[in-house]
Design a protein around this nucleic acid. Structure first.
Lengths: 188, 188
DNA sequence: TCTGAAGACTTCAAAGCTAAAGTTAGGGTC
DNA sequence: GACCCTAACTTTAGCTTTGAAGTCTTCAGA
């Protein structure tokens, strides 16, 4: 542990307790449904904390959270683990420009290769290297241990119920991004 | 709507279906617990989508998601809605440097004021303006409508169960950030 | 009172992202 | 075959954030 150069990394979050937060919001905004607020706030906090945790874990492997996202996306594409920059950008929610730079970096680190598609020279093919796949696997092991530990208070039944409810929520947002006016549409 | 200059904004995410994703991961990584993966992936996706949605909503008010976060944090501090840059940074998970710049911008836009604390001139006090509070309220209304719509498939009982389970997960991560080795600690 | 040290920002340089403009290959249309 | 249009990146300029160094108070001790 003494040889780890103690990377500054993401700072710990310091938020007020969730109950406190909801109490203040109710005082400041009468229409608030505390049950809804509890769910939504807990979702947000949970994710922020988890992302901090993931970031710390993968940094031990010498990669950033951003790079890990790319590795995951390439593995999800299935063997031979290839995607174009444009497709990667869409799946990661980045602009193509950002993707270009990220691929530059990762190619320089040997995590992926970048080549022109010889059958259509407008296209570029980003492919996971063996080293990239190895890093993905190591990160995946750490992540799944962490996730199992996170969920250890929930029984198998509870996990099923939780998963099912989250999927229902997800269906609602995935098939219905708000339009410019900010309302959900296409929901039925 | 034609006068809105059609801000480019965040691109829509395009991820493979969750079932597909889990199937691929199971093929590539045998130790994976699909139930755990389902919960964790759904949590992540849900949050990404929600953040995109929030961002689009508040941009109609002329503020960014980042600015909205600051407004929320100041309101959470309670009247008279004051916090120092350092405290804000800790609660938002930013570096003090980033906080300085963000406050600059928001002060320029009239959302907050920034003054030296006369009783201790090392300190700075950031205070919500009336305009900032108004924007917060408007954003809050949009957000709570959106959240209610998001949860409309869940009954009151289900909401209670979901909230309770999320809180349990949150307790696990909040009181136990992984240490440098990446393991959860202090869990009992 | 002077000095040193700690604390709370702010400033600066560099990294990473977005938006918009620029390149280059492919595919139609006449 | 020449021309134009579109698609798929890449490049450029400007922001936002980070990490590290710098500035300005305040406070404790000599």
């Amino acid at each position: 542990m003494s040889d780890t150069p103690e990377k500054p990394g993401t700072p710990d979050l310091q938020e007020p307790s969730l109950d406190e937060q909801i109490a203040v919001y109710q005082r400041e905004f009468r229409d608030l449904d505390p049950q809804v607020e509890q769910i939504v706030s807990a979702l947000g906090r949970l994710n922020r904390r988890m992302n901090v945790a993931y970031g710390r874990q993968v940094s031990d492997l010498g990669i950033s959270n951003a790079e890990w996202e790319v590795l995951k996306t390439l593995v999800l594409a299935g063997a031979p683990y290839r995607l174009g920059p444009g497709e990667l950008a869409k799946r990661l929610g980045l602009t193509p420009a950002a993707m270009t730079h990220r691929i530059d970096r990762m190619a320089g680190e040997g995590l992926v290769t970048r080549d022109r598609d010889e059958s259509n020279r407008v296209r570029v093919i980003v492919e996971l290297t063996d080293e990239g796949r190895t890093k993905w696997l190591a990160a995946m092991r750490m992540a799944s241990d962490f996730e199992e530990e996170l969920l250890q208070d929930l029984s198998g039944d509870e996990r099923g119920v939780l998963g099912e409810m989250l999927i229902r929520l997800l269906r609602r947002v995935e098939h219905a991004q708000p339009d410019a006016g900010g309302r959900l549409t296409d929901l039925d």
